[in-house]
Design a protein around this nucleic acid. Structure first.
Lengths: 92, 92
DNA sequence: CTCCTTTGTCACCGATCGGTGACGTGCAGT
DNA sequence: ACTGCACGTCACCGATCGGTGACAAAGGAG
């Protein structure tokens, strides 16, 4: 599940929480954060601390991955650095 | 690439930055953050803001994924909620 | 309608984030 | 030795984080 923005995190987390039948309070408890924070995260708060997000994801049984979208299996191993920089540099 | 902790982010980001031949300053510039922040992130700062992390990842041409480790392709589609909660609840 | 649960929201607060500007170190080239 | 670059680190600062405690709205059940 691609999480390109903080809003993606928001929906993923909220969805997963519902899947597991957890309340915000229950999730907050499991993740060791406050209910208010869970509420804000599910609202797409961009300033949420990385560590807390990771903990919350784990509390939901989810895992975080970092991928290189340009490394297509069977295509090639390395990347066009210029290409990458070009695409992400100015305006994508 | 699994990022289970903020330290994983640290090494992934630092490694990728080197792959691309970018300096901390250059990356900071591309991501719209300060060089100090990049330095701290690469040091494993757990309080780094999610939004900035996402921006930095994008500036490195990387993508963030959220996965359910229990959903093995070809095994089954859904999850044992109890199982998940049990594993992540007490002590994993 | 009443009770209960869940969620959205508020004010208040100490602690800390991230930016800026600067300085010292280590390394490479000349 | 001297110059230049990348990096680590520092003090300072306004802005904001996340926690706490409390209250109101929304939804279901009797």
């Amino acid at each position: 599940m691609k999480a390109d923005s903080v809003h993606d995190f928001a929906s993923i987390i909220r969805g997963r929480r519902h899947e597991l039948g957890l309340t915000q309070a229950a999730l907050a408890d499991r993740a060791g954060v406050s209910r208010k924070w869970v509420h804000e995260l599910e609202g797409g708060k961009p300033t949420a601390e990385l560590g807390l997000v990771v903990r919350t994801l784990h509390a939901l049984g989810l895992e975080l991955d970092v991928r290189d979208p340009t490394s297509v299996p069977g295509d090639r191993q390395s990347v066009d650095l210029d290409e990458v920089l070009r695409r992400h540099g100015a305006d994508g």
